[in-house]
């Protein structure tokens, strides 16, 4: 457990040190949000379109993030990390770090969209919860697939190809919840869907934890 925590802190400091990457991701979010604003002629899109655009922006941001997820464990560094931390600690640390990262990306996008297109969300609690659970689910899938892509020796597009179909169930469930939050369904009536999304997150998280040791060896 201590190992995991050290690793998470290490990923954070790595990210801060590589601040140009962080900066480019932020620029990407602002740029795309503004692009949509421009192309849309400054008008406010319908709620469904708003939600779709939000998830597309988050989706590409998350893919971009995950393509670098195992960058520092490539080549010779891989053996170094393998000796200092077991696969269990590594995957948990990666999952925590990536989840936090994608949660930040999606909340930032929500904020940007509120600035440019207004905030149509009626039930903020439900929307926030769905965003949180959806981001965690995405991070689980992306962490595992980028781990797989990294083991195939630096095929960056492969990670996106592998992740795309696996992300669709999560994104679909999340966006159904988001749309409910936009129309203003009370949170306790959406508990059924929230529960299934949460269960899905936990399930795939466990699966990733069980499968990762098989990737983390040579």
């Amino acid at each position: 457990m201590k190992n995991t925590w050290v690793l998470v802190l290490r990923y954070f400091s790595q990210e801060v040190r590589n601040s140009n990457v962080l900066f480019s991701l932020g620029l990407y979010l602002v740029g795309v949000a503004y692009l949509i604003y421009l192309l849309n002629g400054g008008s406010v899109p319908a709620d469904k379109v708003w939600n779709t655009l939000l998830w597309i922006v988050v989706f590409f941001g998350a893919i971009q993030l995950s393509s670098r997820s195992f960058e520092f464990e490539s080549n010779d560094y891989f053996y170094y990390y393998q000796t200092i931390a077991g696969p269990g600690a590594t995957i948990i640390a990666k999952l925590l770090f990536n989840s936090a990262y994608i949660v930040v990306i999606s909340s930032l996008t929500w904020g940007l969209f509120s600035v440019f297109f207004g905030n149509p969300v009626y039930n903020t609690t439900l929307f926030g919860l769905a965003l949180l659970l959806g981001s965690v689910g995405c991070s689980v899938v992306l962490t595992l697939t980028s781990g797989i892509a990294q083991r195939t020796q630096g095929n960056a597009t492969l990670g996106a190809i592998l992740a795309l179909p696996l992300l669709l169930p999560i994104l679909q469930l999340t966006s159904v919840l988001n749309l409910q939050a936009i129309v203003g369904v009370p949170t306790n009536e959406a508990l059924n869907l929230l529960g299934s999304l949460g269960a899905l997150d936990v399930g795939i998280g466990l699966l990733a934890y069980l499968l990762f040791p098989y990737l983390w060896q040579d």
């Binding site: 899938v141 595992l144 697939t145 797989i148 083991r151 195939t152 592998l162 179909p165 696996l166 169930p169 899905l200 399930g203 795939i204 699966l207 990733a208 499968l211 098989y214 990737l215 040579d218």
Partner: peptide, 19 residues
């Protein structure tokens, strides 16, 4: 390596497909 990595993906993919 191919066998191991694709087995990992196969297991994960099948569970997602069933969901």
């Amino acid at each position: 390596k191919r066998a191991r990595i694709s087995a990992v993906y196969n297991i994960f993919a099948f569970v997602m497909m069933i969901v």
